[in-house]
Write a protein that binds this DNA or RNA. Structure first.
Lengths: 217, 217
DNA sequence: GCAGCCCCTGAACAGTCATTCATATTGGCG
DNA sequence: CGCCAATATGAATGACTGTTCAGGGGCTGC
């Protein structure tokens, strides 16, 4: 019925998002980001995005081949940045699996607190991309999970982690997924106005992660 | 461009979902469930849903007032069922906070493994409902979170839980959210063909939950 | 045989969508 | 000044949307 216009109907006075005259392509990216996050890719129209940067529909196609390409551009750039940050954090954390796990969780949580919008879009709107693009992103996610699995495996081998097991057997992939789910979805509810700062969130989640894998002191 | 038709273009041979001649309203619910889960509410058309039950568009309106109402029907019924199950599980678990937490996590995880589709739809598509309906569901979610917070609070008071703290202070609401996020999102990746059964998932997640809150043995 | 009812059909409606394109407008350079 | 390339415009296109509704089957109980 409502088609989710959410009340913005004043028609005049297009709410221009940019504050300095950025390259229009950057303004479009930013506006699309914000709107996809708030209302979801399929219901955000090209007209919505362009109005938010003070332009009209047609102008999009001077900068992007299609609405699809715009979304793809947005998602892949944030996803690859996430992968890069995770690898970097782990590589710079020394040799102790506990330190590596803590560094990973810290980066992951802080990022998902700070860049809530980016995380939200990347996690919710992948489905609209065509198969090959999706496969690319899933590959990156598996890579991130495997970083975590490797840390856990190393920790178990060296006796510093004692993760939970079922029927006498570890399932580190599942534990890693639980950790990632937990950390990823802070982006859904964390707000800077809440009880904890990003730093405190990172600390709390790092603590919980170490407990979950049975880290020895 | 593609509008996400995902290749189904044979036109003839509508893939009828029902195996026995159920009440059409049930067939519609089931077909809508499956399609919303797979492709998302806004891009699934009334024509898609009805074709999947071997009917045509118009017939929907003999059973539901609108596409919106269909979604609302689906989501509220699963959400209230979840709330009921959680309450029941906790109430029947005796007095020990550890047993209560374990029972809660068990029910929550098993449900989210078994009813993946329902959970997926309920979690992803709320946004399309009008404000009042959304508020209703959020209330139910807060209620579930508060069940968990109460268990934690009780456990802390009685000295059987020692949850992580930041700057010397507990934040049980955040711990509860972390637990819920972790358990909720198994529905995104768990599959019966995987390494663990539902029972094993429940056990593993119960174990991790007890570790996270520092349950004393 | 025939109402009366439930349910279904499929054309029609009014609307929105992404995308295209002929037509401006702009700013820099000679 | 004129010229050119880059970019913006907004009407037009054709496809698809949720919803309505006049018409029509196929049951039931008589």
């Amino acid at each position: 019925m409502s088609k989710r216009k959410s009340g913005r109907e004043e028609a005049e006075a297009p709410v221009v998002v940019e504050r300095e005259p950025r390259a229009p392509v950057e303004a479009i990216r930013a506006a699309a980001f914000a709107q996809f996050a708030e209302r979801g890719y399929p219901v955000v129209t090209v007209r919505d995005i362009m109005k938010a940067c003070g332009l009209t529909q047609g102008a999009l196609y001077n900068h992007f081949k299609s609405k699809d390409e715009l979304l793809h551009d947005i998602i892949t750039s944030t996803q690859s940045e996430l992968e890069r940050q995770c690898k970097q954090a782990v590589a710079g954390a020394g040799d102790d699996p506990r330190a590596k796990l803590a560094a990973f969780v810290r980066v992951y949580v802080v990022r998902h607190c700070r860049l809530r919008i980016e995380a939200l879009v990347a996690n919710r709107e992948i489905g609209w991309l065509d198969a090959e693009r999706v496969a690319d992103i899933r590959r990156s996610r598996r890579a991130i999970r495997d970083i975590l699995v490797d840390i856990l495996l190393d920790g178990v081998k060296r006796g510093v982690f004692e993760p939970p097991h079922v029927d006498g057997r570890h399932d580190l992939k599942t534990v890693a997924m639980a950790l990632l789910d937990q950390c990823t979805h802070v982006s859904k509810w964390y707000g800077p106005g809440g009880d904890l700062t990003e730093e405190q969130m990172a600390q709390l989640y790092g603590d919980m992660a170490l407990r979950m894998v049975g880290a020895q002191p």
